[in-house]
Simulated assay, not measured.
Amino acid sequence: MSYRALAGKQTVLWSFTVAAGRLPVAMAPLAFVFLAKEASGDFARGAVLAAAYTVAEAVGAPFLGARLRNRPYRREIAVGLLASAVFFTGLAVLPDAPLSVTVIMAAAAGASGAAVPGALRAMVADLVPAKDLNSALSWESSLNMAVWAASPALVASAATWWSATVPFYTAAASATVAAGCLFALPEKTGRPETGVRLKAVARQLTAAWPIYLTSAAAMYLLATVELSLPALLEQRELPAAASGPLLTGFALASIAGGLVYGLRTWPGSPERHSTIFLLATVAAAASAAAVPVLGGLAVVLLAAGMFQAVVLIARNLSLQRALPADLHAVGYSLQYAGSGVGYGISAGATGVLLNWTNPTATILITAGITFLLTAGSILGRHRPMAQETERVSNGSLRRL
């Protein structure tokens, strides 16, 4: 197993499509802040727009993902990307529109492309041999992390040197390019198993809830670390500006960790990997709350970034194994929604905790909650999900 299988023409094009389709999502939150500041001088307006975008994305992902069970992937994804491009363009053209209008456009932009990440992840199974799927998913995860790491700098530079509308035109162009590239990739059409009723399908999807919980827990912890870091540095009497380089290091460590994880098949199952490395991430985050010096903080954040990468990739492999092929896109979309919910809840809780207590306590409380969520996912796996899938495919759930 290696990355050589990803050097073919189709997989290179798929990689470019993943990056181009992901760029608008990664740019959006900060772009909304800059747009609101330039248009009205109100940072709160930007936060509202970012929240509308994120919530709509989380809500839309499972519904649009479900459409892919029996529809052509390329057409569905392309329509979603082009619709997002239209709304991003609308936000750039009408930055001074009433708040209600911009909120609707932001939500529509988020919901339209919500199924794209999960669908593109499901498509790669047809592009590489089964033995190289681990490498492909590791590469996809590292690619996403790289886009997320680069996006804030792109948005800030464009908004500062030109205009806050430039990131939205860029996002629209990137989504349009991704939509065009899709039609150079092989078609994939969902083919649901005949005879399996809707309740049986729902039971298959909900049987994977420990994986969704792991996704939510990982993002819950990540949000608190990101949002609490400047305050933690100030509490340590360290420069808050150091949060930028520290988070960049975290992102680069995540990219490196993901690439290393995809180089080979590691002992144990992906489920075990995600659990062990999520606990390791919790330990690293808790250590970050206690480390008093900048160098030590950098070391534990680098370790947390590498551990986090393994969690994100292992959960994708777990879901790939837990669900039949026709439900991969739906499952990935549910997982994506769970991640968004986890991040959103954590962002709100972090704000409350920072007002109620200090940054050290905030991170430790979040680490404790993440540990409990991880324990819940472990207990939820007492009944292997693979057996649940087998039961459905053998027809034992068709009576429902």
Rank of each mutant, 00 (worst) to 15 (best):
W266E: 01
F277Q: 00
V282A: 11
P210S: 09
A208R: 08
Q204H: 06
A284F: 13
L221F: 14
A218F: 10
G249Y: 05
A253M: 10
G249P: 09
A288L: 08
R272G: 08
T248L: 14
K199N: 15
P230D: 12
A251S: 11
P245K: 02
L259V: 08
S215M: 15
G244S: 08
S228R: 00
A286G: 13
I255R: 01
L221V: 07
L232Y: 11
Y220P: 01
L297I: 10
V300I: 10
V260I: 14
A283T: 06
A303R: 01
E226I: 03
A202F: 15
A216I: 11
L232K: 04
P245T: 01
S215G: 14
A200R: 13
A208Q: 10
W266M: 00
A289G: 07
W209L: 13
G296Q: 05
A304K: 00
A231G: 09
L302W: 06
S215F: 15
A304S: 03
P267R: 00
A242R: 05
A241M: 05
P210N: 11
S243D: 02
Q204P: 05
G262S: 01
V225F: 05
V201K: 08
A288P: 06
L278M: 14
L259A: 01
V282D: 02
W209G: 11
A207N: 14
G296V: 04
A218T: 11
S287E: 02
L222Q: 11
E226Q: 05
Y212F: 15
R236A: 12
A253R: 02
L221G: 14
L247V: 05
G258E: 05
L259N: 06
Y212W: 06
A289S: 03
L259C: 02
A285Q: 04
V260T: 07
T248F: 13
A280M: 12
A202Y: 14
Q235M: 10
E237L: 12
R264C: 03
L233I: 12
G257W: 07
E271D: 03
L227T: 05
S228I: 00
L238Q: 04
G305M: 04
L227N: 06
K199M: 15
T275S: 06
A217T: 14
L301T: 00
L229V: 01
R236I: 05
L263M: 13
I211M: 10
P239F: 08
G296I: 07
V293S: 15
T275L: 08
A298Q: 06
T281K: 03
V201H: 15
A231R: 11
V300G: 06
W266D: 03
L247F: 02
A240W: 12
Y261S: 08
P245I: 02
G258V: 03
F250H: 07
